[in-house]
């Protein structure tokens, strides 16, 4: 094995101190985030804020109270699109919603909603399947700025073309344009799509179960978590889901390294669609007496 040059080791130490400062000074805990992506994002912050090193960034974080907002912004980098991976939304429409239809009230938790694209995609699916009146979508994120953007439902018009194609591939029967109005370079989703969505702050690292859900959608969020935090979060999803409730993850995410995976059964493993098993197999349930 090679010996790391000292500057690489030093940068890792600087990252540790940055994470510690963010946690102790501002209460944001990134210590359980997967390291490689975190390092990349922190280096990006160093570059964007013209700092000479991660330590310089840490100093600014400690001494300028408002700077944390920009840091959290840089560390969350919310990137998504409507009906991303159309095959997944088609499966939700054709396989999952018919099962959800048997419940008088349908609760969906979309964790890590970023700018809201997937929450609105779900709302459209539910609307078209005639289920939206008795559904509620809890769309959560830890980034308050992203939540505000999500509530507004305004997106660059240049994205709409791809999203329209996604929508049709996902089995949409109308045109995505029937759900938004276009103004200049932006599209604005119709206000009525938001009527059964609650955008709320929830941090998967520290917060607990807050609803009983029939479907949990959390795509491409766990890829940023270490194995222990991934397992903790999946435990949270298991404890939120009704028995037989569905879990939908990102297309390249894997449960193979999470002990709690034994409590889920694959419905469509290629699309990362799972159900909470009917029988309890592992411990630590929130609801157990």
């Amino acid at each position: 094995m090679s010996t790391p040059p000292p500057d690489t080791e030093l940068e890792q130490l600087e990252l540790d101190l940055f994470v510690e400062a963010l946690k102790r000074r501002h209460g944001h805990d990134f210590s359980q985030y997967a390291r490689a992506s975190l390092m990349r994002r922190v280096r990006q912050l160093v570059h964007d804020h013209h700092c000479s090193s991660i330590s310089a960034l840490t100093a600014q974080l400690l001494h300028e109270p408002d700077f944390v907002i920009q840091v959290v912004q840089g560390l969350s980098v919310p990137v998504s699109e409507m009906f991303r991976d159309p095959a997944v939304f088609r499966a939700l429409r054709e396989q999952v919603l018919p099962i959800l239809a048997s419940y008088p009230q349908i609760n969906i938790w979309q964790a890590g909603c970023a700018h809201g694209q997937e929450a609105y995609s779900l709302a459209i699916l539910l609307e078209e399947e005639g289920l939206y009146e008795r559904s509620h979508i809890f769309a959560t994120d830890f980034n308050p700025d992203a939540l505000q953007r999500a509530r507004e439902g305004i997106y660059p018009a240049k994205d709409a073309q791809q999203w329209s194609r996604n929508y049709l591939e996902a089995g949409g029967s109308l045109s995505l344009a029937s759900y938004y109005s276009a103004r200049y370079d932006f599209i604005r989703l119709h206000e009525r799509l938001r009527r059964n969505i609650t955008f709320a702050n929830h941090n998967l690292v520290v917060d607990k179960v807050f609803c009983e859900a029939h479907l949990v959608l959390c795509r491409n969020v766990l890829i940023y978590f270490s194995n222990p935090l991934q397992n903790r979060t999946l435990t949270l999803f298991r404890d939120s889901l009704v028995r037989g409730g569905h879990l939908c993850l990102g297309l390249r995410e894997t449960l193979d390294f999470a002990p709690v995976a034994v409590d889920f059964t694959a419905v469509d493993p290629k699309l990362r669609l799972y159900r909470r098993s009917s029988q309890p197999t592992s411990g630590n349930r929130d609801e157990s007496p």
């Binding site: 997967a34 390291r35 490689a36 992506s37 990349r40 994002r41 980098v77 990137v79 998504s80 491409n220 890829i223 940023y224 990102g250 297309l251 390249r252 995410e253």
Partner: peptide, 21 residues
């Protein structure tokens, strides 16, 4: 590297993915 994801390595020589910009 899978399509649509950045491919990264962790120090324990396991893969990580990201959908960053």
């Amino acid at each position: 590297a899978p399509g649509g994801y950045h491919l990264l390595l962790e120090h324990d020589r396991h893969f990580a993915l990201s959908v960053d910009e």
